[in-house]
Amino acid sequence: MKKILLLGLISCLFLSCKKEHKIANVERAFYYWKSDNWNISQKEDSISKKLNVKKLYVKFFEVDYSDAMGNFPISKTQLYLYNLDSITIVPTVYIKNAVFLKSNQASLDTLADNVNFLITKFYKEKFREAKPLTEFQMDCDWTLKSKDNYFYFLKKLKSISQKEISCTLRLYPYKYPDKMGVPPVDKATLMCYNILNPLQNHTKNSILDIDELESYLDTDKIYPKHLDVALPIYSWMQVYKNEQFSNVIYTDNKMVKKLLKEIKPLWYSVTKDTVINETYLRIGDKVKFEEIDARKIEQTIHLLKKYVSFDKNTTVSLFHLDDEQLSNYTNEELSGFYSAFSK
């Protein structure tokens, strides 16, 4: 009898380890992260509709800091959208960590007032046909030194706006909430990309490395907030001139690969003088080309379902809505990134 019970216990433990956490109702979303005078193209609009996307996280602006100006907004979007009666717009603001390292409570009170004012003003001007504004999302790579100020700001913004407040959540604070704290928000979006420092990890894909991802997700702790999730559907090239890092280019993978010769995994040499997105590439320039294919995203979804306990209703976002980046996937693949969470 004891042997049967022991075998039963072992079997249950084994099955529980293999159990995947499915999402019953997936709300499909995109991030829209373009600034200045960009607008959604016909292709981007068409794909969104075909995928039945019902939510857009739109970066309204960023907040930076300087000793001369204090906290100030930059990179404002001029996006206009029409026929928005079925779309939920979530205004998103990226705030640089320096803002919270340099601010006191009085300036954070002012910042919360200004963020609320600017979001509300812009929303009324540009998205009059959209659903009523219900949520703000804040995006910040907070650190131990900035944590208290950032959390204070989030509480103040909630009080002033009377809106649902969400924030982005990187993998490190997800795994170590006791050390990094849990932000005082209604919910958080787990960002499954930009895992490594691209300039310090030359042999790994800094956007998304599966082994690194699993090391962060593999934790016994259940995060004490509702978690949505965001996946990367972008690629980039890190350009090196004379062995020194120059800049990053986002581009169409198929087009740019015709101009590159592989040196070693992830690394290429430019074979023809050319201009890509206002960057002049010379023969011999080196490029670290990091791309995310459909298989890598499918592996990511498998790990998320294995380790993360999702609520019944969860938003799955793809970062980000850009026709060049979308061209790297079929519509079936893009749709599958959403539906896989329910299978």
Rank of each mutant, 00 (worst) to 15 (best):
F151A: 04
N313V: 13
L56D: 05
T143D: 14
F14Q: 07
Y32V: 03
I95W: 00
P132S: 04
A230P: 02
D67Y: 14
T143W: 06
T134V: 13
K258Q: 11
V287I: 08
V99N: 00
W267L: 02
L144M: 08
A112S: 06
N25S: 13
T77D: 03
K241W: 08
Q78K: 13
Q325E: 04
F289G: 03
D220W: 14
V275L: 13
R295N: 12
T219E: 04
P265E: 14
I263E: 13
E44C: 00
V182C: 03
S215T: 12
L217V: 14
I47M: 11
K76R: 15
K175C: 01
N71D: 07
S66R: 04
H302D: 15
H21A: 09
N205T: 07
I249D: 04
L334A: 01
Q325I: 05
A340P: 07
I87Q: 02
F14N: 10
L84G: 10
L208G: 00
S75Y: 11
A24E: 14
L326S: 00
V275A: 14
V256L: 06
F127Y: 12
K241Q: 12
G181W: 04
L334V: 03
D45Y: 13
T271L: 12
I195Y: 00
N205C: 05
S11C: 14
I23D: 01
Y94L: 08
V239Y: 05
N71L: 06
N25E: 12
